[in-house]
Amino acid sequence: RQGFVPAAYVKKLDSGTGKELVLALYDYQEKSPREVTMKKGDILTLLNSTNKDWWKVEVN
């Protein structure tokens, strides 16, 4: 499932696989259909980080 999360809630990881991955630093509950819920410690695939406030991710 793809959607947006606050950029301040995730940290980029060095995956070494060519995929950009991020680590969820905090729990986040989606507040609109365009967002996704994540739990602290989740590893997500980063799809787009051009917006400084909201990053598009895919929940694996």
Rank of each mutant, 00 (worst) to 15 (best):
R1C: 09
Q2E: 06
Q2V: 14
G3Q: 02
G3Y: 04
G3T: 02
G3W: 04
G3A: 04
F4M: 08
F4V: 06
V5H: 01
P6Q: 02
A7M: 04
A7D: 01
A7Q: 05
A8Y: 11
A8T: 12
V10S: 01
V10T: 04
K11E: 10
K11Y: 10
K11H: 10
K11P: 00
K12W: 07
K12T: 07
K12C: 08
L13I: 15
L13K: 04
L13A: 04
D14E: 14
S15L: 14
G16S: 14
T17C: 13
G18Q: 10
G18T: 11
E20Y: 10
E20I: 15
E20H: 14
E20R: 14
E20N: 15
E20T: 13
L21P: 02
L21Y: 13
V22H: 04
V22N: 01
A24M: 03
A24G: 04
L25W: 03
L25T: 05
Y26D: 07
Y26S: 08
D27C: 06
D27K: 02
D27A: 07
Y28E: 00
Q29C: 11
Q29A: 14
Q29W: 11
Q29N: 14
Q29F: 13
Q29T: 15
E30L: 07
K31Y: 05
S32I: 04
S32T: 10
P33D: 12
P33F: 09
P33E: 12
P33L: 09
R34C: 14
R34A: 13
R34G: 14
R34Y: 13
E35M: 05
E35C: 07
V36W: 06
V36F: 13
V36M: 11
V36K: 02
T37V: 03
T37L: 03
T37W: 04
M38T: 04
K39Q: 10
K39D: 04
K39S: 09
K39L: 08
K40E: 07
K40T: 07
K40I: 06
K40V: 07
G41E: 02
G41I: 01
D42T: 06
D42H: 06
D42Q: 14
D42L: 03
D42G: 03
I43G: 01
I43S: 03
L44A: 07
L44P: 00
T45L: 15
L46V: 06
L46S: 01
L46T: 00
L47H: 04
L47T: 04
L47N: 02
L47M: 07
L47C: 06
N48L: 08
S49N: 08
S49P: 06
S49R: 09
T50K: 12
T50V: 10
N51D: 15
N51G: 10
N51Q: 09
K52H: 11
D53R: 15
D53A: 12
D53W: 15
D53S: 11
D53V: 15
D53N: 13
W54A: 02
W54N: 02
W54H: 02
W55K: 01
K56Y: 15
K56N: 06
K56C: 12
V57C: 03
E58C: 08
E58L: 08
E58N: 04
E58W: 06
N60Y: 14
N60L: 14
N60I: 14
N60E: 13
